[in-house]
Write a protein that binds this DNA or RNA. Structure first.
Length: 560
RNA sequence: GCGCCUGUAGCUCAAUGGAUAGAGCGUUGGUCUACGGAACCAAAGGUUACAGGUUCGAGUCCUGUCAGGCGCGCCA
């Protein structure tokens, strides 16, 4: 990081000095210093010359040459070995010394904190995710949202944010009553009564199972129980299932927030009052409307229906008022993409209360479809047939499910082919990554067996590491903090699996060199100093693999 | 009809406006009695859906077209 800043300042100085007085020169912080994409391009590259071509009315290559010449005139710092100008105007920079391993010592010192920023340096953030009403077991779509949400939390925490994980649900609305009626009907059916099942009831087998359990527990005693009994009975048990599934994936929440509490606390009324005071609501046709069109919505939305019932939107606006009141500086809602149409009106509600639209970010997670035997399995809680998250967890385990759910951008829908997942599971990229980690652990065990003691980074001479595989690996390890930065800035967990796979491949290639060339082996009893240097690389790799896997909530086994 | 997302190798997907578009799986050929082979090396495979535009430079940004998914309620 420091090198980068120094380079920015150096190039900025050169630009000012060479083109003194010209308008439109970039500021120091805007000079892009990027890690070179290939070894032949040095350590860093800069593209300022291309960007300035039109401003300076000169060919970019000439500008680049001028800048480099200016640096030399000013006296090129010792820590820069070489600066090249390459068509059409890249400035490629080589650092002196063995930059490939510049980060290694720091990584060893920082250990599990490598890639993390100090707590409290980021915004206080509330992440709301899953938020499924307890009307049925979680399906794979919920699973994707759950994994992405949890990974985003872990990534933001690594970025210095104080994060609260929250699950918002409604245990008292229409859907819950519907669930209660569904259980009641199944219960009576289980008792042998000939009753009709509600048309809009929950048709899944799990309601039948609940009815059977209830029959075993209570016999016929609940035949005339109130609807509320069935609603509470069903939702309590379903919430337990949900909790178990989430725990099985390593996901825990700090707060389970009930919609009903917003009514109890008076915040719903408070929100309505504030909207009225701000003249953001109005009455028409017997209903109360939100002026959401003022904030880009295509039509105004109803807050209170003409029958006096509030719409879903009203408590949700109150909920976000509550989030702000609790002192959060940022709210993130992980939503299923089928709810994307709702975002504009919710943001409108927040803005109508006077908050910035930036307060809330709503990444929407694209649908997951599931294929079995080449046929799509429909995912519908009410339709009855679905693949549950639990089935997936039982079949593949939490690590695999988490990896797959996080490995690609949530902007893309994806098809989870159960047969394919099973067939290829042994060649799963995750196993390659975990195997690489196990290998690093084993190398250290092996070293001890051979009487080699890892003596820490201080004793290491990195000049001894001359293999191209070693340098590539060293550079890749140094890039980790940038990967975390980007994952946090873009709320994009999928950066991490890609990076992990790259590390695993680099390490496997390095390791394999030793198969054909004994001098390239990591453990060399005949060359203790070289072995120490190589072990340093292994220790650092192990650390970075652990740190990155930790951000995904995936285990780093020492043996497989 | 309007809105959101997507379209990249046979398949599943990466790629911060930068240099010759990359991985995994699959296919083909090779390495190997090993510091754990759950490995490695190599090859084949691309008009980045199509057509324009913006600029030094576009898979990436803009416009249009086509295709797939989702959403468009005084439902949640």
């Amino acid at each position: 990081m420091e090198t980068k800043t120094a380079l920015q300042e150096l190039l900025h100085q050169a630009l000012i000095s060479a083109f003194n007085g010209v308008d439109g020169l970039p500021e120091t912080k805007d000079i892009a210093i990027k890690p070179a994409s290939k070894a032949e391009f040095g350590d860093f590259s800069n593209t300022s010359a291309m960007g300035l071509a039109s401003t300076l009315r000169q060919p970019p290559i000439k500008i680049a040459q001028t800048v480099v010449a200016e640096v030399e005139k000013m006296g090129c710092p010792k820590w820069i070995k070489r600066m090249d100008v390459v068509s059409p105007g890249f400035i490629n920079i080589w650092l002196a010394g063995d930059s490939a391993f510049g980060a290694v010592k720091a990584i060893i010192e920082q250990g599990e904190n490598y890639g993390r920023k100090p707590a409290g340096t980021g915004r206080r953030t509330l992440v709301e995710f899953v938020s499924a009403n307890p009307t049925g077991p979680l399906h794979v779509g919920h699973g994707r949202g759950a994994v992405v949400g949890d990974c985003i939390c872990r990534i933001l925490e690594a970025n210095g944010c104080e994060v609260t994980r929250e699950y918002y649900y409604n245990n008292a609305g229409v859907q819950m009553k519907n669930l209660g009626r569904s259980l009641h009907a199944r219960y009576l059916q289980a008792l042998g009564d000939d009753v009709e099942f509600p048309d809009d009831g929950y048709k899944g087998d799990y309601v039948r199972e609940l009815a059977e359990t209830l029959k075993e527990e209570a016999g016929e005693s609940k035949r005339d129980a109130k609807l509320e009994f069935f609603t509470v009975y069903a939702s309590d048990r379903i919430m337990q299932w949900i909790d178990e599934d989430l725990k099985a994936m390593g996901i825990t929440f700090d707060v389970f927030f009930k919609e009903s509490s917003l009514y109890e606390s008076g915040e719903v009324e408070e929100a309505l009052k504030q909207l009225a005071e701000r003249e953001m609501s109005y009455k028409q046709d017997g209903a109360l409307w939100l002026k959401s069109t003022q904030f880009g919505d295509e039509k105004d939305r109803v807050l209170i229906k003409s029958d006096g019932e509030k719409t879903y939107l009203t408590p949700d606006i109150a909920y976000h008022l509550d989030k702000a009141r609790r002192g959060f500086e940022r709210a993130i809602n992980i939503l299923g993409h089928d709810h994307h149409g709702y975002i504009v009106r919710l943001k409108a509600g927040i803005q109508a209360l006077g908050f910035s639209a930036d307060f809330l970010d709503c990444p929407t997670i694209q649908m997951v479809s599931v294929e079995r035997d080449g046929k799509e399995v429909k995912l519908s809680t009410r339709g009855g047939e679905f693949i549950t998250l639990k089935e997936l967890l039982d079949e593949f385990g939490a690590d695999v499910v988490r990896y797959f759910m996080a490995m690609r951008s949530y902007d893309s829908q994806f098809t989870f082919d159960l047969n394919l997942a099973q067939d290829t599971s042994e060649k799963n990229p995750l196993y390659k990554i975990q195997y690489a980690h196990a290998r690093t652990c084993n190398l250290l065990v092996k070293a001890k067996e051979q009487g080699i003691e890892w003596q820490g980074a201080d004793a290491v001479d990195f000049e001894l590491l001359q293999l191209s595989e070693e340098k590539e690996l060293g550079k890749a390890l140094a890039r980790y903090p940038e990967i975390v930065d980007r994952a946090a800035a873009e709320l994009a967990p999928h950066c991490l699996p890609n990076y992990l796979l790259e590390l695993a491949n680099l390490f496997n290639s390095y390791f394999a060199v030793g198969n054909n060339d004994a001098s390239a082996r990591i453990l060399r009893v005949d060359a203790p100093e070289l072995t120490q240097a190589r072990l340093a690389l292994v220790v650092v790799l192990r650390q970075v693999l652990r740190n990155a896997l930790g951000l995904l909530g995936i285990s780093a086994p020492e043996r497989m």
